[in-house]
Design a binder for these strands. Structure first.
Lengths: 136, 136
DNA sequence: TTCATACTTAACTTAACGGTTAAGTATCGA
DNA sequence: TCGATACTTAACCGTTAAGTTAAGTATGAA
């Protein structure tokens, strides 16, 4: 699983929180199931590229390019020891993505409260909402 | 054609871990800046389609299709009153996306601590022969 | 030197995406 | 009934994305 020492080798360039363009790339990267699985796996520790690709039924070049996508948006760092290439996860872009969603939390938090009430009475809803306020 | 069944309380499914396919669509939807802006705007309240599209320099059909993407992954609901079509945000998919990231938080939370230490040292990228040096 | 390993890059195919214009459907107002 | 308004759907186009196989690069070992 981890042939290399897990010891921290230092963080790479941390991305300064820049605007939307980065979020495009980060959310785009997370929209692929293979890349999400890779990210999930890397939360357990650094890993070689071949081990990273082993669970998936795609070719090595495909994995390599998924990693390039993840690297391009700052989600992972890659380095090489001998002929083995390793990856590690970088948390910052994940925090950025979570941050964007969290900033909208005020809304859906309230809505989830509404959902609780909704589940409470288990009402059936009508099909005709009102103009500016369908129903609550 | 599609009545777009207005679910006004919020989304139904509480079986949180609806699998990857949905996350593909949700993250994919959020990877576009116009769609993110639409979502952001809808956190302030429901809105007509034309008002929703007004800030963007794209045609109405383009907006309509962005809304279709958001609707398909459950992020919004649409309904019609007279000739005006309205949208409202549904929090559940946002919570789902945030939930996926949060489940990885244990990792990057720890790493941000490491980042602090890193910023502390902030020296040149070390000729340290550490086996896990993320440089090229 | 020579071969095997571990990846990446190149070239290509196919499918999806985002935009457009044009046409269609419904509703409102005169 | 006729026309304007508010959108959606259809058809098309150029770009991007994901997959493939084949070739290239670099390292380790024989």
């Amino acid at each position: 699983m981890k042939p290399a020492a897990v010891r921290d080798g230092g963080a790479p360039a941390r991305s300064a929180a820049a605007d939307g363009g980065e979020l495009d790339a980060i959310f785009g990267a997370l929209s692929d199931p293979i890349r999400r699985a890779i990210v999930a796996r890397l939360t357990e520790g650094e890993c070689s590229v071949s081990q990273l690709g082993a669970p998936f039924a795609v070719s090595a070049p495909a994995i390599s390019r998924h990693l390039a996508v993840l690297e391009r948006c700052g989600l992972i760092a890659r380095w090489q020891i001998g002929r083995v290439h390793y990856c590690r996860l970088i948390g910052d872009p994940l925090a950025q993505a979570a941050g964007w969603i969290e900033q909208r939390r005020a809304f859906w938090q309230g809505q989830l409260d509404g959902l609780a009430a909704y589940l409470d009475r288990e009402e059936e809803n009508s099909c005709a909402p009102s103009p500016t306020r369908p129903s609550r």
